[in-house]
C-alpha cells in the first residue's frame, strides 16, 4: 500500500515536473527567474533598476516577445538570397553572397533547420553549412567542404565570432527564437527611424550557452517588426547597433526586413546585409536538410 502511494506520488511529481517545465518553456522563464536574471545583469553592468516595477516589466517584456514569436509562427519554409558588403574603418569594402534555406520546426521548444550556401567570395563557392537549431543547448552543425567532398560536424560553440569576416555573428542570424532569452520591458517611444510609429523597447538577456552578449535592447513596432537592436558585450559595452529597414510583407502576414545595417561601435567597421525577395512555401521537407542534401546544395 505504502509502495503504491510512493509510486503514485513519484509518477504525479514526475509528470507535474515535466508539465511544469513544458509550460515554463512555452511561456518563457517564470517571472521570478526573469527578475533574478535582470537584477544580476544590472548589478554586473552597474545599473540601477526600478525594483518596484521589475516584476511587471519582466511580464510585459515577455508578453511582447511571445506575441512576436506567435505572430511569426506558421511560415513553413523559406528560401532567400543574401548579399553582404563589409566596410572597414577606411571605407574599403568586401562582398559576400550567400543563400539561406529554412524549414520551420513547429513548437516553442524546438529550433528550425537551416542551410547556408556560400557563393562568394569564389574560393568558398559550394561550401555549405547545415544547422539544427536548439533553444538552450548547443546547435547541431555540419560544414561541407566541396574540394575534398567532406562533411564535417563542427562545434557550434562559436556563436559570437565574426560570420565570414563580417560584423554579424552567427547568433545574430539564428538567435531570434523566443525561448532563447528572458525579457524586460523598458518603455514605449516613437521608433528611432520612423517617428510616426510607436516602438516597444525591450531588453533581453541570452539564456543559451556561449552568447557573446550580456544583453540586447530591441525596438519593435506594433506590427512585430524589429527595427533596431543594440548589442552589449560581456563587459557591458555597447558593441554593435543593428538597424533594419525595407520591410516587405509576405503571404499577407509575415514581415521581413530586406536590409540590415550592423555597425560596430568599438571598431568603426560596418556590414550591410541585403536580401532579395524571400520565397515562401517552396515545399522543403526534412529530407532537404540532411548531410546528403548539404553535399548537393548549390
Amino acid at each position: 500500500m505504502k509502495l503504491a502511494r510512493f509510486w503514485t506520488f513519484t509518477l504525479v511529481a514526475t509528470f507535474g515536473l515535466i508539465a511544469g517545465l513544458n509550460s515554463a518553456n512555452a511561456a518563457g522563464v517564470p517571472v521570478e527567474e526573469g527578475v533574478r536574471i535582470a537584477t544580476e545583469v544590472a548589478n554586473r553592468c552597474k545599473e540601477t533598476l526600478d525594483v518596484a516595477t521589475l516584476a511587471d516589466a519582466v511580464s510585459r517584456g515577455t508578453a511582447i516577445a511571445l506575441a512576436t514569436e506567435e505572430y511569426d509562427q506558421g511560415f513553413g519554409d523559406v528560401e532567400s538570397e543574401m548579399h553582404m558588403v563589409l566596410y572597414n574603418r577606411h571605407g574599403e569594402s568586401a562582398e559576400r553572397d550567400l543563400r539561406q534555406h529554412t524549414l520551420e520546426m513547429v513548437g516553442l521548444d524546438v529550433g528550425d533547420k537551416s542551410m547556408i550556401i556560400f557563393d562568394r567570395p569564389r574560393d568558398v563557392a559550394g561550401m555549405a553549412m547545415l544547422t539544427y537549431a536548439k533553444i538552450l543547448e548547443a546547435d547541431d552543425q555540419w560544414m561541407y567542404m566541396p574540394a575534398i567532398k567532406r562533411v564535417k560536424r563542427i562545434s557550434s560553440k562559436n556563436k559570437s565570432g565574426p560570420f565570414m569576416g563580417s560584423e554579424f555573428a552567427f547568433e545574430d542570424f539564428s538567435g531570434q527564437e523566443f525561448g532563447k532569452y528572458s525579457y524586460r520591458y523598458l518603455r514605449d517611444e516613437p521608433c528611432p527611424d520612423d517617428e510616426s510609429l510607436t516602438c516597444h523597447v525591450v531588453e533581453r538577456y541570452p539564456l543559451y550557452e556561449n552568447s557573446g552578449y550580456v544583453k540586447q535592447i530591441g525596438w519593435s513596432d506594433d506590427m512585430h517588426r524589429g527595427r533596431r537592436t543594440e548589442f552589449y558585450n560581456r563587459r557591458c559595452d555597447l558593441l554593435k547597433v543593428m538597424v533594419a529597414s525595407d520591410f516587405r510583407q509576405y503571404l499577407d502576414h509575415y514581415w521581413r526586413a530586406h536590409k540590415l545595417r550592423m555597425e560596430n561601435q568599438l571598431t568603426g567597421k560596418a556590414t550591410d546585409l541585403t536580401w532579395d525577395d524571400f520565397t515562401f512555401n517552396v515545399g522543403l521537407t526534412d529530407a532537404d536538410f540532411t548531410q546528403n542534401s548539404l553535399k548537393r546544395a548549390r
Binding site: I148, K149, R150, V151, T285, A287, N292, S293, R296
Partner: peptide
C-alpha cells in the same frame, strides 16, 4: 548525375566520395 527524390538519392557517373573523421 545526381538525382534526389524524397528520401532517395542516386549517383551515376564519375564521382568523388569522402569517408572519415
Amino acid at each position: 548525375w545526381i538525382g534526389a527524390f524524397g528520401n532517395w538519392e542516386f549517383h551515376v557517373g564519375i564521382d568523388k566520395v569522402f569517408w572519415g573523421v
